[in-house]
Design a binder for these strands. Sequence first.
DNA 1: ATTGATAATACAAACGTTTACATTATAATT
DNA 2: AATTATAATGTAAACGTTTGTATTATCAAT
Lengths: 347, 347
Amino acid sequence: MNSKINSRVRLEDLARALKLSIATVSRAMSDSSRVKPETKQRVLSKAKQMGYRSNQIAKSLSSGKTNVLGVIIPRYDEPFFIEVCRGIDYYVRKHDYRILINSSRNSFKYEKENVLAFERGTVDGVAMCFTHETNSYEHVEELIDRKMPLVLFDNISHKIDGAGHVKIDDFSSAVKAVEILIKHKNNSIGYIGGTSKKSVFNQRFDGFVEAHKKHHQSFKTRHVLNCKSYHQEHEFYEVFNFLSKLQDVPNAFFCSTDNYAILCIKALTKLGYKVPQDIEVIGFGNLHYSNMFTPELTCVSQPSFKMGEKVAEMLLNKIDKGFFISNTDQNSEIVLPTKLVYRDTTR
Amino acid sequence: MNSKINSRVRLEDLARALKLSIATVSRAMSDSSRVKPETKQRVLSKAKQMGYRSNQIAKSLSSGKTNVLGVIIPRYDEPFFIEVCRGIDYYVRKHDYRILINSSRNSFKYEKENVLAFERGTVDGVAMCFTHETNSYEHVEELIDRKMPLVLFDNISHKIDGAGHVKIDDFSSAVKAVEILIKHKNNSIGYIGGTSKKSVFNQRFDGFVEAHKKHHQSFKTRHVLNCKSYHQEHEFYEVFNFLSKLQDVPNAFFCSTDNYAILCIKALTKLGYKVPQDIEVIGFGNLHYSNMFTPELTCVSQPSFKMGEKVAEMLLNKIDKGFFISNTDQNSEIVLPTKLVYRDTTR
DNA sequence: ATTGATAATACAAACGTTTACATTATAATT
DNA sequence: AATTATAATGTAAACGTTTGTATTATCAAT
């Protein structure tokens, strides 16, 4: 069985040493009003002396609470997700919770595995962002059926009944960004973005389209690139290839992430264009390294840390209340504001 | 007590439904040879039908194993640490483990809290990197006393008896990098790095000194900067200030991280210098975005993902063996090789 | 049929807590 | 001194597993 039992101090050991019952010791440790101050003091100092550490597993089994939140992100190596995790962590620590992060490695299969793992009782609630592959939702619906508090964030194409939703308005944010480019008298604007399988990217592209429509301007399909690659280097070549083959390079680009914007600028520079003098570029995200580049990137700033905090807040509320905020409830969805950060890649 | 009991299917429910004992059902679920194939089949299909999910908490309490590894990193927002986590995660998943990441937020106080949390039985082992503030080690020694398998990585100034150690050779890597700059006939080389409180930075600086000594070349103390800031923007101004005040800007810089190298290049560019034509720069780390900058960064490549894998391997070995690889054991330390990646910031 | 071996299953304790309920101690009131 | 209220502590069940040991079933050999 348990191989470490011999070394661990348990409530029982404290109880024996103090000639008290386990119950009293337990209550003393949790500062219950039912044990007298003097006894509490004795227990506490004995606990310290004997190096007692409560067994969180036993506590969890008994109380039905783990004080751990599960977080499922599509991948580790995208700073946005880490930033959201940081926000979640920051918030929940104040409430004595910890987070267990699982990456889906960009695969629906792993996403399902991760959800399954969280059905095993190791977490009190789940925060989650879908991969680009996800287009069926039985796995999360089952999670909800099992009464697991769930909050979804970012990349939401599809509202899930019983889950909370935290996102930004990708569509209008994109509209605003592209409108800037239009107002700057760019009559030919290109779009470079990630896979069209990902809902957020589609919404940002739709915003790109909408801005054109709104201002009675048109764009060329050949100026639109939806990248398929996942590795940094491949992505760069995809962007570079795309741009180098164009006869008529647009005067401006709207990119669906900062990463694409940076790659776009790099490729344009390589092709002899100057940003922003010849061509303007706007990114999306505002990663912490976006202002380390020269020229510093103009972009839509996405409140990733804040998003994490909101996700956490919503999730802890759900856990607390012990019931489920319904989809019709105004609290089931939070849309966070974005803002445009003007830096050096626009004029 | 537990508020979810009503909904959860337990072994007992399966047992009752199948008119079997809990023990048999438990054994069937874990594919024990003591239960006959036909019964196993019945159990499995009933489990599926009733939507049974084993309770990991109960399992852990009973078996003394959580199948979770604790990982303590100084901070989330440094891609190096995330990359190490990714390596750990990648390795341990193959062995049915998960990781619980805790950030110390660059503070020794939180680091101790994190260690304490892991003494509560929620993890089977701990992987950890010290913050720059850490210079006392009772907390980890206590962890070891409590028989917790422990592997330290990166930033190790001080060997801890009973712990495993995984690192790179910061000193020689720095020597090699600076030697390149010397071979390129740079007779004046500067150093820009992080806080001298952090062991890895000291070791890299010592390498910088050693390379000079080895080649009978000297450097000026006024060409050395140990940054004190922690925020991206402050860091930039610190670097920019430092450089703008110099009468005699060196012909080359060795920076103790990629980040400083990038900030250094940005500052130099702002001051009108061309990299690498006027001034060469070498970074340290090889972050995934180091080659997105123009010019692409020449740097010492640190095998962060690999480091994670090695940490994980060592930790699982310790857990398996159930005993402690002593410090004298050759297996208690792994030093991973680095390599110099030549890109565009050197000639 | 009886015996014996072994396969299959059952019983019950253990893991370390929490907590409802029961008991005992203490102090205030008569 | 007896009664009562309440403060303090104790007893034991429960949380859902695993696993050592005990029991029963099965079947081959006599």
